[in-house]
Computed example of a mutant assay.
Amino acid sequence: MAAYRVPHRPEVEARARRQTQIARWVGLALIWLLVGVLIFLGERAIPDQHLPWTPLSVVDPIGAATKAKAARTGEDVAACRGVLAKGGLTYVLAEDSANGFCSVRDAIQITGGMAPLLPADAAMTCKQALAVAIWERQIVQPAAFEAFGHAVVGIEHYGAYSCRRIYGQQAGPPSEHASANALDVAGFRLANGEVVWVKSDWDDPGLRGRFLRQVREGACRVFITTLSPDYNAAHADHLHLDMGGKPLCA
């Protein structure tokens, strides 16, 4: 008995291939339509601070995407300055400088719109200044009102720019301070005249210690690197905040 052969019908096979291709294209279109609908609904249901593709704003609370957006926005000097201005921050441009492995480019000094830095001549990269402004407005001030019932009217610091390597060593990678991309915060001056110092109040079991840890934890949500007295003895008297080091919160 002869073996059975499936009839060869080119027109049927061609029609089947077309139908398969059409089904694939329709499936892809439906998937992209679903993605678009989810994004559309997400942008209306999820606050901007949690969405990485929405513009950064100084007035938005800290969200899941704040750190990434601050780092990205800060790389574009014009965009960074625009966000500061839109958020009510004023600033003056700092002079560019270069000294061996140290350099300052496109730095600014904040002159208004937040509690002043003390001393006032703290030139920082725009990315660093943007992070400081967000931290001051969204973390520091609410924490101060919650703990003390007073605003912070001055942020004491040990400097932003310093031409040195990490820990002041003779060799090794440059510190973020060498490019004005860091700030060492020593204390917070309150409206009632009191000052909360990192050095003397970090281990305070009451409101002062709680406040300092709250602003440290908040800084970890904004800055790439946040170091405190909990990290090592070199940071016993300040909070190191920078936007260029490795991701670290300690």
Rank of each mutant, 00 (worst) to 15 (best):
W25R: 14
E13T: 10
D48P: 15
A14P: 15
T73A: 08
Q214A: 14
L41S: 04
V198F: 11
L117P: 00
Q138S: 06
T73P: 13
W32P: 00
P7D: 13
R216H: 09
F223G: 01
Q128E: 11
R9C: 12
G244I: 05
M114Q: 14
D121S: 13
Y167H: 14
A120V: 04
S162F: 06
S57Y: 00
G82V: 07
G149F: 00
G244Q: 01
M114T: 11
V153S: 06
D96N: 06
L207R: 15
G206W: 10
V153Q: 05
A191L: 13
P142Y: 00
V92W: 08
C80T: 03
L118Y: 10
A107F: 00
L89E: 02
R9D: 13
A160T: 13
R189M: 09
R5M: 12
W202G: 03
A178D: 01
F188Q: 08
A191H: 02
A71P: 11
G154E: 04
D106W: 00
K86N: 10
T226Y: 09
R105H: 10
D201W: 05
F211H: 02
V215N: 03
I166R: 07
V37H: 07
T20I: 12
G74E: 00
G87M: 04
V152D: 02
T225H: 02
D96F: 01
N232P: 09
L51Y: 02
A85F: 05
S228M: 02
